[in-house]
Design a protein around this nucleic acid. Sequence first.
DNA 1: GACCGGCTGTTCAATATTGAATAGTTCGGC
DNA 2: GCCGAACTATTCAATATTGAACAGCCGGTC
Lengths: 223, 223
Amino acid sequence: MKTLSTSRGKKLVFQPAAFLAKTGLGRTIADLKKGQAIFSQGDSANAVFYIQKGKIKLTVLSKRGKEATIALLGAGNFLGEECIAAIQPQRMATATALTPSTILRIERKEMVRVLHEEKLFSEIFVTYLLARNTRIQEDLVDQLFNSSEKRLARALLLLAQFGKDGAPETVIPKIGQETLAEMIGTTRSRVSFFMNRFRKLGFIEYNGKLKVHSSLLNVILHD
Amino acid sequence: MKTLSTSRGKKLVFQPAAFLAKTGLGRTIADLKKGQAIFSQGDSANAVFYIQKGKIKLTVLSKRGKEATIALLGAGNFLGEECIAAIQPQRMATATALTPSTILRIERKEMVRVLHEEKLFSEIFVTYLLARNTRIQEDLVDQLFNSSEKRLARALLLLAQFGKDGAPETVIPKIGQETLAEMIGTTRSRVSFFMNRFRKLGFIEYNGKLKVHSSLLNVILHD
DNA sequence: GACCGGCTGTTCAATATTGAATAGTTCGGC
DNA sequence: GCCGAACTATTCAATATTGAACAGCCGGTC
């Protein structure tokens, strides 16, 4: 049961090992409605979460009321893991369910205990952290290098893969321009502008639902 | 010897545990001159490094020849740790010594072994990864929210702390405008412009060497 | 069907940012 | 002291981005 596959070196998925699948001392399972909050920025933090089903959005609020979306996390990801090491743990972001979701709540002490006692779990967790690290770093590099047009293209392409493995042209569940803007660090009007541009160029389809073609890659690759 | 202090919840420093301080099977110590490369983006990766002394710069090269600096790492940090988990490990960034440095090279296999067999080390490493994660995430949020003026101010303030603990007004060793520009994702001319602005406002001193006053905080906090 | 709320398309002036060019400065070696 | 290399200051037109406003569109509900 130590299945630990890394598709394209990025997205990490594994069958939750036995110790994570079961509820018990210090672990409970919760079902979330769409839009429901798991924790909010500033809350004191004493539990880690593991996403079993659904998609979770992580957002940060700036001093001036702006919102930024730092990550969309799907099944197989952890959530709020920073509290494991911190002395006086505070949530640095707000976690909200984007779709109906099932999460496993693991109390901090329990998490520490399992990390100590279960070698396999510890190994998996380190692997997870490394993958997460790389992903955030890629996002940072993207911000440092690319214009908002390219960042939007990249975000859409990543969303299209989100949860899938094979299909190169995927329908994206439902994501507002506002959220997209928060993800790539720009304004909604800019997102609207580029979305229409992409549509006119035939890179995406975009009536009720959103469909991303692989030709959108051109935006990123060109020049 | 499990000292593991977290100053201000951000910077992580610990006395390298015994297993890291010694060279031996799969571990060697190297001394680096200023400017010397440790590895380059694209190299195949089969070792992790641990910085014992000095400062290391991590940079990424974009397709269009731009360079971005993702991190400055000091003593107590790891380097190139992504290769531990990856299937076909490639260095994603270039690591260069910014000052004369001493690093410990740990072969990947050895790193995996130690992580398996030494609970304490594994614990320390997880803590390290979590701290690193938070820091990168903060950098990302900074990019998403702030103008280049604020990003520069933040970068300078962080540099001023870099390695220190108490002193609120510190002299910064030596850092070119080019590097600063690469760190915050803007152009050198912009950095020059803001540096002079900060100087005129009395937030920094800036003749031969660079001195950051705590009043620079105003730039970040205001509005 | 009328109303509403939430999303989207579009416009526009005010700013911010780029990128390249030019000139000045500092520093170390010779 | 002279030279060159590397860094810094400054300018400027061309672009990109913001922020706010306004109108249209859709889906649901009463």
